Lab assay of single mutants.
Amino acid sequence: MAASAHGSVWGPLRLGIPGLCCRRPPLGLYARMRRLPGPEVSGRSVAAASGPGAWGTDHYCLELLRKRDYEGYLCSLLLPAESRSSVFALRAFNVELAQVKDSVSEKTIGLMRMQFWKKTVEDIYCDNPPHQPVAIELWKAVKRHNLTKRWLMKIVDEREKNLDDKAYRNIKELENYAENTQSSLLYLTLEILGIKDLHADHAASHIGKAQGIVTCLRATPYHGSRRKVFLPMDICMLHGVSQEDFLRRNQDKNVRDVIYDIASQAHLHLKHARSFHKTVPVKAFPAFLQTVSLEDFLKKIQRVDFDIFHPSLQQKNTLLPLYLYIQSWRKTY
């Protein structure tokens, strides 16, 4: 089996927390979720979201995140109150960019949308954001926290390059993509939290790379249903696996070995980020709550012996909000 052949990389499970039942964490995340308004986002309300009498641009960002990046939404709820709305805006910006690729039928249209967001970032730093909910909220975040323009532009530029429907040539190319998107998002989150620390940035770099790799793995069944495969070609070739094997949902050992190798790289990034947690300011830990969902996925895929098409991998963990709150309460990542 794939797991038994390579099992030495995987460390002990961390979500089991001995003695936790003896201490009762304060009510927090679930209460916040219940208090949030929840009407559906419609095209009509989106168009009017920044106008008078609408929910408001902040509510639009929150709803977009809740629907399109639920794990990011849950993590954002546990940030300090003064930072929450800015991170909602930042993550909503990322969602807007991420959904361009799947929402257009022609690359030219995707490039036009990316050009809109490039100009939007430029206009935000000229205090002239367009009348668009996410743009307005992002402008507020930039003004409030003096966010670095370079990180925002890196996210747009990398998403634009990724409009080509090509597999990553190697794991390094996937890591570079993750660094310029997910890690950049974390650098900006640290700025919102008021953290300027080399060790925190180092952790953000590795956690962002782990996030990018896990996202690529999780999306494999969806991409396969659209006749697309984006997994690193070098690892596929190493194990003699073709793109057609993934399109046919082949579950042979060599296919699972490909998934094992890729998942192991995410695991190593996560492990390395945690190896120097004592040197990272505690104030930075809330920015890294996504490690909970990353670890949850890596454990699940290990349990199914790296069968990327196993139905259990597509099921939401209903206990994730609780695990996130516990992680926040324990002040760790």
Results as ranks from 00 to 15, higher is better:
Ser45Tyr: 12
Ala48Thr: 15
Ala49Gly: 05
Gly51Glu: 06
Pro52Tyr: 14
Gly53Val: 14
Ala54Ser: 13
Trp55Asp: 15
Trp55Thr: 15
Gly56Cys: 08
Gly56Leu: 14
Thr57Lys: 15
His59Ser: 11
His59Gln: 12
Cys61Lys: 03
Leu62Pro: 05
Leu62Met: 08
Glu63Asp: 14
Glu63His: 13
Glu63Leu: 09
Leu64Asn: 11
Leu65Cys: 10
Arg66Gln: 07
Arg66Met: 10
Lys67Asn: 10
Arg68Gly: 09
Asp69Val: 02
Tyr70Trp: 08
Tyr70His: 15
Gly72Tyr: 08
Gly72Lys: 05
Tyr73Met: 08
Leu74Phe: 08
Leu74Thr: 04
Cys75Lys: 02
Cys75Asp: 03
Leu78Trp: 04
Leu79Met: 13
Pro80Asp: 12
Ser83Ile: 13
Ser85Gln: 13
Phe88Thr: 12
Ala89Ile: 02
Leu90Tyr: 00
Ala92Arg: 03
Ala92Tyr: 03
Asn94Pro: 00
Val95Trp: 05
Glu96Thr: 10
Leu97Tyr: 01
Ala98Leu: 06
Val100Phe: 08
Ser105Arg: 15
Glu106Lys: 06
Glu106Gly: 10
Lys107His: 13
Gly110Cys: 12
Lys118Asp: 01
Lys118Met: 06
Lys118Asn: 06
Lys119Tyr: 04
Lys119Met: 05
Val121Gln: 01
Glu122Cys: 09
Asp123Leu: 10
Ile124Gly: 00
Cys126Pro: 01
Cys126Thr: 15
Asp127Asn: 08
Asn128Tyr: 12
Pro129Asp: 03
Pro133Gly: 07
Pro133Trp: 05
Pro133Thr: 08
Val134Lys: 01
Ile136Arg: 14
Leu138Pro: 02
Trp139Leu: 05
Trp139Pro: 01
Trp139Asn: 06
Lys140Tyr: 04
Lys140Cys: 03
Ala141Asp: 01
Ala141Arg: 01
Val142Met: 08
Lys143Pro: 00
Arg144Asn: 08
Asn146Trp: 05
Lys149Phe: 06
Lys149Tyr: 05
Arg150His: 07
Met153Asn: 13
Met153His: 12
Lys154Gly: 07
Asp157Arg: 10
Asp157Thr: 14
Glu160Gly: 13
Leu163Met: 08
Leu163Ile: 13
Asp164Gln: 12
Asp164His: 14
Asp165Gly: 10
Lys166Gln: 10
Lys166His: 13
Lys166Met: 10
Ala167Lys: 04
Ala167His: 12
Arg169Asp: 10
Arg169Glu: 07
Asn170Thr: 14
Ile171Asn: 04
Lys172Ile: 15
Leu174His: 00
Asn176Ile: 14
Thr181Pro: 01
Thr181Gly: 02
Gln182Ile: 14
Gln182Asp: 12
Ser183Cys: 10
Ser183Trp: 00
Ser184Pro: 09
Leu186Trp: 00
Leu186Cys: 09
Tyr187Pro: 00
Leu188Val: 07
Leu188Glu: 02
Leu188Ile: 09
Glu191Asn: 07
Ile195Phe: 05
Asp197Phe: 00
Asp197Lys: 03
Leu198Gly: 04
His199Met: 11
Ala200His: 00
Ala200Cys: 09
Asp201Arg: 05
Asp201Ile: 04
His202Cys: 05
Ala203Pro: 02
Ala203Thr: 12
Ala204Val: 01
Ser205Trp: 02
Ser205Asp: 03
Ile207Leu: 13
Ile213Gly: 00
Thr215Gln: 11
Cys216His: 11
Cys216Trp: 04
Arg218Val: 05
Arg218Pro: 02
Ala219Glu: 04
Thr220Gly: 05
Pro221Gln: 12
Pro221Phe: 07
Ser225Val: 15
Ser225Met: 14
Arg226Pro: 03
Arg227Ala: 09
Lys228Val: 12
Phe230Asn: 12
Asp234Tyr: 00
Ile235His: 04
Leu238Lys: 14
Gly240Thr: 06
Gly240Leu: 04
Gln243Met: 08
Glu244Phe: 04
Asp245His: 07
Asp245Met: 12
Leu247Met: 11
Arg248Thr: 07
Arg248Cys: 06
Arg249Ser: 12
Gln251Ser: 13
Asp252Tyr: 12
Asp252Ser: 14
Asp252Ile: 11
Asp252Thr: 15
Val255Cys: 11
Arg256Pro: 03
Asp257Met: 09
Val258Leu: 07
Val258Lys: 00
Gln265Ser: 09
Gln265Ala: 09
Ala266Pro: 01
His267Ala: 11
His267Gln: 06
Leu270Cys: 03
Leu270Trp: 01
Leu270Val: 12
Leu270Asp: 00
Lys271Gly: 14
Phe276Gln: 07
Phe276Trp: 09
Pro281Thr: 06
Pro281Asp: 08
Lys283Cys: 12
Ala284Tyr: 00
Phe285Ser: 15
Phe285Ala: 15
Phe285Met: 14
Pro286Phe: 07
Gln290Asp: 08
Gln290Leu: 10
Thr291Cys: 09
Val292Lys: 09
Leu298Gln: 04
Lys300Gln: 14
Gln302Val: 06
Arg303Ser: 12
Arg303Asn: 10
Asp305Thr: 03
Phe306Glu: 00
Pro311His: 09
Gln315Glu: 12
Gln315Ser: 10
Asn317Glu: 15
Leu320Tyr: 07
Leu320Ile: 07
Leu320Phe: 07
Leu324Pro: 00
Gln327Cys: 07
Trp329Ser: 06
Lys331Ser: 11
Tyr333Lys: 01
